[in-house]
C-alpha cells in the first residue's frame, strides 16, 4: 500500500517532467534539462551522504572523472558518444573504488578532509595534463560528435528526454536500493555504525559499495553533462562543485529520494531569478540559505515529510 503510493509519487514526478517537455518555454526547457542532470549528481551524492551518513567534500572528482572519461577518448581517440559514455562512467567507478579503499580508513571529519584533498589533487592533475585536457580552458565536444544511438543530443527535445531518462533511471534505482536490505544496512550505518557492525554486517564493504555507487552515479552525471552541453572543463573539478551537491541535498532534504531534485531546482532558480533583479544576488542567496536553515531545517522535502506526509521516502 505504502509502496504503491510511493512509486506513484515518483512516477508522477517523472510524468510531470515528461509532460513539461512539450509545454515549457525554450529557456526553462533547457534549464530543467540541465537541472535534471545536476540533480542526478545530487542523487548520487545523496546515496553516500543522505543514506550512509558519510560526508564527502570531494565528489567533484567523480563528476569530473565521468566528464573527462567521456571527453578525452572522444577528443583524442575519436571514440563515439556511446562507448565514451561507458568509459566516462567506468573512469568514475575505478576512481571511486580507489578513493574509497583509502578514504574509508577514516571516519567523520577526517573522511571529509581526505576526500577534499584527493579531489584537489585530481583538479590539479587535470591542469597538469594540460597538453591533453587544455587545463582550465577545457575542450569543446563538437556538435557533430554528440550522437547517441542515432539521436542528436544537441537537439533541445532529445537532450531533455535523454536527461529525463538518466534522471528517472537513477531516481528509481535509488528508490529501489533504499528499500532493499542493503539500503537498510546503509541507513543502519548512518544511524550507528558500531551497532551495525555488532549486528554482524561488514560495514566496510557496505560503505565501499556506497562510495563506488555514489561516485559512479556522480560520474554518469558528469559524462552526461559533457555530452549534452558539449564542454568539459577543469572548473567542474574545483572544490565548489563538491560543495554544490551537499548544498542541494541539504536544501532539498537529506535522506529523501526527491530532495536532491527539489534542492537543485530551488538553488538554480534562486540564483537565476535574483540575478535578474539585483546585482547583489549572492547576498540574497546567502540570506535565503540562512533563513532556510532557520525555518526549514530538514530541507524542502524534509519539511514536506514533517508537515504533511510522514511516509515520504
Amino acid at each position: 500500500m505504502r509502496g504503491g503510493r510511493l512509486i506513484g509519487l515518483h512516477l508522477g514526478l517523472v510524468a510531470v517532467l515528461f509532460a513539461l517537455n512539450f509545454v515549457l518555454p525554450a529557456y526553462s526547457h533547457g534549464t530543467v534539462a540541465r537541472v535534471m542532470v545536476l540533480a542526478t549528481y545530487a542523487m548520487g551524492y545523496n546515496i553516500l551522504f543522505g543514506y550512509t551518513g558519510l560526508l564527502s567534500l570531494g565528489h567533484a572528482m567523480f563528476f569530473a572523472a565521468g566528464m573527462y572519461g567521456l571527453a578525452m577518448p572522444m577528443t583524442h581517440l575519436g571514440l563515439g558518444a556511446g562507448p565514451a559514455l561507458l568509459t566516462g562512467i567506468g573512469s568514475a567507478a575505478v576512481l571511486s573504488l580507489g578513493v574509497g579503499l583509502l578514504a574509508l580508513r577514516t571516519r567523520g571529519v577526517a573522511f571529509m578532509i581526505v576526500t577534499l584533498m584527493f579531489s584537489q589533487a585530481a583538479w590539479l592533475t587535470i591542469l597538469l595534463a594540460g597538453r591533453w585536457t587544455r587545463g582550465d580552458e577545457g575542450v569543446v565536444i563538437p556538435q557533430a560528435d554528440r550522437m547517441l544511438l542515432g539521436l542528436d543530443l544537441s537537439d533541445p527535445s532529445t537532450r531533455y528526454l535523454a536527461a529525463l531518462a538518466l534522471f528517472s533511471a537513477v531516481l528509481f534505482g535509488t528508490l529501489w536500493l533504499v528499500r532493499q536490505p542493503i539500503g537498510r544496512v546503509l541507513v543502519a550505518i548512518r544511524e550507528n555504525e558500531d551497532r551495525a557492525e555488532l549486528l554482524g554486517y561488514d560495514t566496510f564493504r557496505h560503505k565501499l559499495g556506497a562510495v563506488v555507487l555514489s561516485g559512479t552515479v556522480s560520474g554518469a552525471a558528469g559524462a552526461a553533462y559533457g555530452l549534452f552541453f558539449g564542454y568539459a572543463g577543469a572548473s567542474f573539478a574545483e572544490t565548489h562543485y563538491s560543495i554544490f551537491p551537499l548544498l542541494w541535498v541539504l536544501l532539498g532534504g537529506a535522506g529523501t529520494v526527491i530532495g536532491p531534485f527539489l534542492g537543485t531546482l530551488f538553488m538554480f532558480y534562486l540564483i537565476d531569478l535574483t540575478s535578474g533583479l539585483t546585482p547583489a544576488y549572492m547576498l540574497v542567496a546567502g540570506v535565503a540559505l540562512v533563513l532556510l536553515t532557520l525555518f526549514a531545517p530538514q530541507g524542502l522535502a524534509g519539511e514536506i515529510r514533517r508537515r504533511w506526509w510522514r511516509g515520504l521516502p
Binding site: R134, D136, E137, G138, V139, V140, I141, Q143, S154, F229, G230, Y231, G233, A234, S235
Partner: peptide, 8 residues
C-alpha cells in the same frame, strides 16, 4: 574557459 563553455 567561459568562452569555451558558452560557445557550443
Amino acid at each position: 574557459h567561459v568562452v569555451m563553455g558558452s560557445a557550443p
